[in-house]
Design a protein around this nucleic acid. Structure first.
Lengths: 210, 210
DNA sequence: TCCAGTTACTTATCGTTGTAATGTAAAGGC
DNA sequence: GCCTTTACATTACAACGATAAGTAACTGGA
């Protein structure tokens, strides 16, 4: 019964074409400026065809954003294997996070800044379901716990420290995306300094991190 | 010639009515969900009348947001006078910033997160004009410089430290607004810890801040 | 081989949005 | 008393996301 499988494959191909076209338009003009009609025109299908593959515009964009953001998890894993030191891993993951966010501004916006559009009503995240991008928090939490377990960070509260760290890193990306023309110091230097300051400020009292 | 002055006054009254109505709708359903037609209906004028007072929807919302955010400057000044200690002032201004952002989520979003919509094209911020909300940075910069001047913070780079601090504080607000149902620790505790960690991590080596 | 049903689309359409062009009634100035 | 300006309303438009109603091709069973 290879025919129906070919159909499934072909359907998947069109789905990929939609995603690809949307991704490009989306990257050019940003989230709000991309329209379904433009996407449709780019792939030479009618606008309504998109609705056969995605519930609505929000779901299409959500799909794209999550797909784009997924590789960050791999990057985290690669860093984890490269460095044996948990503090160094934490630092480099933080840097990677910021760099990644700035390299994918539209997707970052959608997942970490614009979730208003689909978090409550249009998308139906049932009560305790995870918000998109929330796995980033959990990744950092594990790293922080590692640091505490090795006595490299103050063991009072892993949760608090993780939230502090994520907030600070997100702040760097978020402000950069918003104030693109502001006289920021070098982004990598800023990210580094943010992480270092927090790690220094959260280290065990007896031992100064260098 | 009191007649034309009355006219000006009446025009100002209508402008205030528009702003007030828009502010309410805006606060209820958020930025994107408020429509000019709803605003018009609320004040019992035609939709196009709004265009006699504001260039477009973006300018109306920008006006509202900046008006809402303005009192924060007064709060900063009040804090500055209440505490003589620059570190304490910095800490409390940071806390006030976070609290303010969370109390005015829509306006905060517009100024500090959604500026994409009007920063480059639709609004004409000529080359070196300030972005809205940028004064916050300058306020913090002055406070950081005060701390450095008194030897309470590491004097290497006021600019870097200010950016670190602002990014971290913004991150707290921004993430809270985006992940409203996330299991955040108490917002005030988080903000406090963010500021403390950074101040601790940026203090002069000889002296531990308490 | 025929035909009912499904699949994968398109076309036509709806309601809503921001906004521009045009119309209009009242008031002010000469 | 006429002309212009002011301060609105009315009408209209293009574009949007989304739905409903077609339609042509293909499929599977009798």
């Amino acid at each position: 019964m290879g025919i129906s499988e070919r159909k499934v494959r072909e359907k998947e191909v069109l789905r990929r074409k939609i995603i690809q076209a949307a991704r490009e338009l989306f990257a050019e003009g940003g989230y709000g400026n991309a329209t379904l009609r433009q996407v449709a025109q780019k792939i030479e299908y009618s606008p309504t065809t998109i609705y056969l593959h995605f519930e609505n515009k929000a779901e299409l964009l959500k799909t794209i954003s999550e797909e784009t953001l997924a590789p960050l998890a791999d990057t985290f894993n690669a860093i984890d294997e490269e460095f044996n030191d948990p503090i160094l891993t934490l630092k480099n993951c933080g840097l990677a996070y910021v760099e990644f966010g700035l390299r994918h501004p539209n997707e970052y916006r959608l997942v970490f800044m614009d979730s208003q559009g689909w978090n409550e009503e249009s998308m139906d995240l049932s009560e305790e379901e995870e918000m998109p991008g929330q796995w980033v928090y959990e990744s950092f939490q594990i790293l922080v716990q590692d640091c505490i377990a090795q006595g490299r960070l103050d063991p009072t509260d892993a949760e608090t420290l993780t939230q502090v760290l994520w907030a600070a890193l997100h702040g760097v990306v978020s402000l950069h995306l918003n104030y693109t023309r502001f006289a920021w110091i070098d982004q990598k230097a800023l990210a580094t300094e943010v992480i270092d300051a927090i790690i220094r400020g959260s280290g065990p009292k007896s031992k100064i991190f260098d």
